[in-house]
Design a protein around this nucleic acid. Structure first.
Lengths: 210, 210
DNA sequence: TAGATTGTTAATCGATTAACAATC
DNA sequence: TAGATTGTTAATCGATTAACAATC
């Protein structure tokens, strides 16, 4: 997993998509597939698929193609889905609830171990068997349970303070749903900014001339 | 808006981010900014900012920089935020609720005019003053109200059928939250696939070696 | 063996960065 | 006018596509 140095993010961002298509093929009992067939299903070139996969080693067989199940497993391993990362959700409002309920699953490499909010009316409720706790108790919780990932589902004005606290507590990765842009200025901290608004504005642009 | 031909998606996807940073600057009463200052705040090069903006015309002034408010307005116009698009939300489950409640706002160019679900227990409820209607009545509703955008918040197995129906009813743009990849095989149909799972898997990869 | 399809190198294309003349 | 910063062209860099030899 760590022997593959300098893979570009363009390649990495296609891996989950490969993983998804391969999972569909498994559901449909497809055993093997060629880069050409897959390229037609996915709407990209066969060349790109082979190029991408060969960043990580030869998963295919000349004259035959790729074994779907093996390839899916291999990509899952590259993505680290089998390595469960302890995750806390910060913010139990609407978006926090969706994230806690629908997004963080163990088959994707994340195990939710805590949910936090500063709103007293939410503290004590449970989502998927996990009690919503007071944000003030984050220090105690992290020191005891050592989560490494946080999903931020809080208003932008609360983000800068909570990031500093969480980094001090050993959080290494942020899944950021707030409207605040986390710039990766800390070494060894990973960030995924989601920004659904940006996606919607992009759709607005695309639909301008239709 | 339509005189700018052939702008690459790389540029377009940066526009909402410019818009967001400029909006922050307005909130902070900053009147003017140079590409250099903005580049430092955003973590990109000044050259790229100037290159991007000049796809659409000269918004700046040599020796002075850009007037924040004017530039923000101009980008909003390029994105089409001032042109309200009638939007329906398909699916009123957890994700549909978040989209209906928090995502579709008029200051972003979209006006929600309908919410639909096939689950009888949800029909009749209201979200932001709009009644959840039976998906079966989509034909009647669209023929009367002519929405042009749909946000798809339904399970993947329901997507192919609903897309065909909605395209037949004149929907031109899809904001797709389902785990189904809408490939743009129809001309004059715009699609934004969101795929939060892909984002999470990318975070998984990034956090592998920390 | 012949046919198919990969792995991989080379060619092309596009996006980003650098440089500088234009100009406020 | 002098200083600053844009608009824009040229150079660089990276990503995608094409081609083909290797090989199952």
């Amino acid at each position: 997993m760590s022997k593959h140095e300098h893979i570009s993010m363009s390649v990495i961002r296609r891996l989950p998509r490969y993983y998804r298509f391969l999972s569909f093929l498994i559901e449909s009992d497809v055993m093997r597939i060629s880069s050409k067939e897959l390229s037609e299903k996915m709407g990209i070139t066969a060349s790109q698929i082979r190029q991408d996969l060969n960043c990580f080693g030869g998963f295919g067989q000349q004259g035959y193609g790729y074994i779907v199940e093996d390839l899916q497993k291999a990509i899952g391993e590259i993505l680290g889905l089998n390595n469960l990362k302890k995750t806390v959700v910060i913010g139990a409002g609407n978006i926090g609830r969706v994230v806690a309920t629908h997004m963080i699953f163990e088959n994707q490499g994340f195990k939710m171990i805590g949910i936090f909010d500063k709103n007293e009316r939410l503290i004590g409720e449970s989502i998927r068997g996990i009690r919503i706790d007071d944000s003030a108790s984050l220090e105690k919780f992290c020191n005891e349970n050592h989560p490494s990932v946080a999903a931020l589902c809080i208003p932008k004005e609360d983000v800068p303070e909570i990031i500093d606290r969480l980094i001090a507590l050993g959080i290494k990765a942020f899944w950021n749903f707030s409207h605040y842009d986390i710039l990766v200025k800390y070494p060894d901290v990973a960030v995924e900014n989601v920004h659904l608004n940006d996606s919607l504005m992009t759709l607005s642009y695309k639909s301008n001339d239709l």
